[in-house]
Computed example of a mutant assay.
Amino acid sequence: MADEGGITFHPPSIDDFFPAALLFEGTPFEITRITLAQFLATLALVLLLVLATKRMRVVPGRMQSVMELGFGFVREQIAFQILGEKDGRRFLPLLTTFFFTILFMNVTGIIPGINIPGTSVAGAPLVFALVAYVVFIYAGIRKHGGLRFLKNSLVPSGVPAYLIPIIAVVELISTFIARPVSLFLRLLLNVLVGHMMLVLFFSATHFFALNLNAFTPLAAGTFALSLAFTLFELFVYILQAYVFTVLTAVYIQLAVAEEH
């Protein structure tokens, strides 16, 4: 879109998620802006954990208090509440890692200078989903053995014999295919769409205000929407980390349950 002076408005597109290489172009170690966002999110998380736990005190300081609050939330509201204390302790490290890693990678989408989530391309959500899937299978096999786990997963108790073939196929798709795919797509698409909306609002503000050399009412409106949607996206980023972790815990609980 262009005005009478030929100024062009560039809306967000899928090309935003295929940025140019910053380093090592054309190699397996190619670094893009999204890869850099993932590195920075991981580094920030590791530094925060190190600094918060470096000098643990009985009366915690601010940073230690924040981290204890975060760990306590995952432990009490997700791990113990869904899996119980025994299994919750077993899988707490994995669930905590999921929650904080996804959260920090999501939040890079609203950090000035980065402005893109580390989870906005398929690689990161796919890795998280595959790890959750492998742990779900592992938990079920370790608890019941391979054959019993498969039977519990595919044939719920009380199903009439003549319905077993149909139910088994349905359960096979829903349990072993739909679960990892839904984990992957839910995280990826929510973050991807949110990023495109943010880019749209900020691009419109730039177009109306800076390119037209006047802070017009339209620019003020799109800027207000940009700020409001930034706060909303922060909420979505936290929610997506929570939902992914909760669903992982639920799937593990279903795997270790006696009957489904």
Rank of each mutant, 00 (worst) to 15 (best):
Phe91Leu: 05
Phe176Pro: 03
Leu49Ser: 10
Gly194Trp: 00
Glu68Leu: 13
Phe149Gly: 04
Pro125Asn: 08
Lys54Tyr: 12
Arg142Thr: 13
Leu192Phe: 14
Phe104His: 04
Arg75Phe: 09
Lys151Trp: 12
Phe73Asn: 01
Phe80Ile: 09
Ile78Thr: 01
Pro125Glu: 05
Asn152Val: 05
His144Pro: 04
Arg186Cys: 07
Ala139Tyr: 03
Gly84Glu: 07
Gly140Pro: 00
Arg57Asn: 11
Leu51Gln: 11
His195Thr: 15
Leu185Glu: 11
Thr108Gly: 02
Leu94Val: 07
Leu130Ile: 15
Arg142Val: 13
Ile137Thr: 05
Ile78Val: 14
Ile102Tyr: 00
Thr101Val: 11
Leu95Trp: 00
Phe176Ala: 10
Ser174Asp: 15
Thr101Pro: 02
Arg89Val: 09
Ile78Tyr: 01
Phe100Thr: 01
Val107Met: 10
Arg186Leu: 13
Leu172Gly: 08
Phe149Pro: 00
Phe136Cys: 01
Glu76His: 08
Tyr162Ala: 12
Gly61Ile: 10
Gly146Ala: 12
Leu94Pro: 00
Lys54Phe: 15
Leu83Asn: 01
Leu49Ala: 08
Phe136Gly: 01
Ile78Arg: 01
Pro60Ile: 03
Thr119Ile: 07
Phe80Asp: 03
Leu183Glu: 02
Pro180Thr: 09
Glu85Arg: 14
Leu130Gly: 09
Leu49Phe: 11
Phe73Gly: 02
Phe100Gly: 01
Ile137His: 07
Arg75Ile: 06
Met56Asp: 13
Phe71His: 05
Leu103Cys: 05
Val58Met: 07
Asn190Lys: 04
Gly61Met: 09
Ser120Gly: 08
Phe71Ala: 05
Thr175Val: 08
Glu68Tyr: 09
Val155Ser: 02
Thr101Gly: 01
Pro117Thr: 08
Pro93His: 08
Arg57Thr: 11
Gly123Val: 07
Gly145Trp: 10
Lys151Met: 10
Gly88Cys: 05
Leu49Glu: 12
Leu130Arg: 07
Gly88Arg: 00
